[in-house]
Design a protein around this nucleic acid. Sequence first.
DNA 1: TTGTATGCGTTATCAT
DNA 2: ATGATAACGCATACAA
Lengths: 334, 334
Amino acid sequence: MNIYDISEKAGVSIATVSRVLNGNSKVSDKTRKKILAVMEETGYQPNVFARGLGLNTMNTVGVMCADSSDMVLASAVYHVEQELHKYQYDVLLCCTGYETEEKAKYMNLLLSKRVDALILVGSSFIEKNMEKNQYIIEAAKEVPVMLVNAYLDASNVYCAVCDDRTMMRQVTREFLEQKRQILYLYRSLSYSGRQKLQGIKDAFKDCGQKPEKDQMVLMKDSTIEDTRKFLAERWGQGVRWNVVMTSDDELAVGACKFAKAQGLKVPQDMQILGYNNSKISICSEPEISTVDNHMQKAGTLAVDQLMEILKKEEVEQKTIVKGEMVLRDTTIDL
Amino acid sequence: MNIYDISEKAGVSIATVSRVLNGNSKVSDKTRKKILAVMEETGYQPNVFARGLGLNTMNTVGVMCADSSDMVLASAVYHVEQELHKYQYDVLLCCTGYETEEKAKYMNLLLSKRVDALILVGSSFIEKNMEKNQYIIEAAKEVPVMLVNAYLDASNVYCAVCDDRTMMRQVTREFLEQKRQILYLYRSLSYSGRQKLQGIKDAFKDCGQKPEKDQMVLMKDSTIEDTRKFLAERWGQGVRWNVVMTSDDELAVGACKFAKAQGLKVPQDMQILGYNNSKISICSEPEISTVDNHMQKAGTLAVDQLMEILKKEEVEQKTIVKGEMVLRDTTIDL
DNA sequence: TTGTATGCGTTATCAT
DNA sequence: ATGATAACGCATACAA
C-alpha cells in the first residue's frame, strides 16, 4: 500500500495525498476527508524510508551512553527518551562502553544511520586528553551534539552540565569548617570526576588548606566489597578519618559496610556522604546522605535545547543544572 | 557524495559500485580495489534511507521496555543491545510505561518505522486479560516479536522465559519443609508475577498445604518505606511469620528495615528472600539472599533466536532459562 | 485547489 | 565482469 494506491482509490493525484499527509493547508476539506477515509480503511502507513530519502531525516536521534545498566546513566537515558518522545523523535540507543575507540565506532555508526542529532549521556565521554575527544568534534560537523553532564568547547556541541564542582565545594567546606578529617573516594577522571575533585580543592583553598595526596583516592572498578576491604586495610595501617566523601553511592555503601565491620558508629564516629541519590542510597543501613546532581534534569534539558537547535534557534552552549543535598542518616554536620 | 560520484571518479558504472558495496563476488579484483580506494579517499558513506527504500529494512529492531530506569529491565535492555550490536543490528528504544494503550501506541510507532523485529523486555507486557495482549498478536503479523521473560502463545511470537515458577516452587518447598511460616510480598500480576505465585502454590500443594489468603500480599507501587510500614502494622496486629519471600529485592530491603526496627534478628528470627539479584541486594544490611532468574541471559537468548528467525530458520516458540539461588546473609534454611 | 514531473540514492534485473 | 535502467515511495517545484 503506497501513496499511488491511495491516490487512485481516492480519485486524486499523489501530490494531493502527500499534501494531506504533511498537513499542507491547501487542500479542500472535501478531498482531505475523502483521502483520510481511504487511508483509514486501507490502514495505509507512509514508508519512512522513502520519506527519509527525500527529506534526509527520519526524526531519530542517537543516544549514546557507556553502560545503560548503570543506574545513574539508565535513569538519565530514560528521561532523555521520554522527553524526545514528546517531540516525536525516536531513540537509537548505543551502549558504548568506556573505550574511546568503541565510542568513536558507535558514533560513526549512528552518523551513517543519518540521525538528526547525537546525545551523549554521562561525563565519561569527555576525557582529559583532548585528542580522545576529537571524534566528537568531528561528529559535530555533521549533526548537533548534546552532552549530558559533560563539557566540551567546540562548534555545534552543546552541554547541559550538573553543578558537581559547586556541590562538592560546598559540602567539603562545611566539613572542613567542622574540622573534620576527610577521606575522598572517587571512581574516575571523567569530566564530572574532575569537576568534583576540583570542587574539593576549591573548598580546601577556601579554608586556607590543601588536601593531602592520600586523602583522595581513586577506586576505579572497585566493588562494594573492594571498598570495604580497602578502608579496613587503611584503618589497619593506622590512618584515620571521620568523614568519607564519595563520587558515587556505591562507594558510600562500601564505607557503611566498613564502618559496621569496624564497630564505628555512623554518623557519630564517621560521617559518610554518597553521590547521585540513587536507589542504593536508601537500601543501605543507615540510609545514606547524598548529593543529587539532578542528572535527569540535565537530560531533559539537553533534549529541550536540542529541539531549539533543530529549529535553528540560538541556544547557550553551556547550561548548568543546580544540584541538591539529600540529607539522611550518615551525616550530622550538614 | 553518492554512488554516482564514486562511479564517475572510479570510471565505472554505479552498478559496479553497488556490487562492491554489497560484497558481490562478480567484480574483478582490480576494479574493486580502485573503487574501494575512491570510497576511502572521499569518505563515502552509502545513504541508509535509499538503501532502506530498496531493501525495505534498515537493520533495526525495536526494543520496548516499560521503564528503562528500572534496574532489572535496564540490565536486560543493555544485554539485548550488546547482543544485537554483535549482529550489526541497531536498537530503537522505547520506554512505554505500564499502560496497555501507551504500549500499543509505541508499538505502532516502531512498526511504522519499519523495524525488522520487536523485542519486548519484561513480563509486564503480557497481561492476564488476553484482550490486552491483542496488539502484540497484531504486530506479530508484520514482524517477529520476541518476548523476554514473558509468554504468549501466538503465531510469530517467540519467548525466552525465566523459570520463575520452578525457582519459587523450589525455595518455597524448602521453607515449608522446615515448618516455616511464610509471608510472600509481591508487586504485580504480570506474567512473571503470576508464575511466581503459581510456583508458591505448587510448593504448598507439594506439601499437602494451601497458602492462606493473607500470606500473599500485593504491594503494587510500595516503596521500601511503605513496605517497612506495612510489615510493622501487620506485626502490630499480632500477625506473625518467620520468612518473608518477595518478588523483588526492593521489597526484601523493606523487610530488612522492618526487621531491624522491630529488633528481629535476621536470619535467626526472620529469614528474608529477595528476587532478581540486583545490586541493591548487596547494599542492604545484612546482604540479601536472592533468586537470580538470569534475565540477561533471556535477553541475549532472545536476540540469538531472533537472528535465526530472520534467517528463516526454525526456532522453538518457547525457551526456558534456568535460574539460580544466590545465598547471602538473610537465609539459613536453604 | 489540484495535477505533472522530477529527484532523492540505492538495489536488482536485464543486457552486453 | 560490467553497464544501462527500472523500480522503491515519497516530497515538492512548477503548471494549470
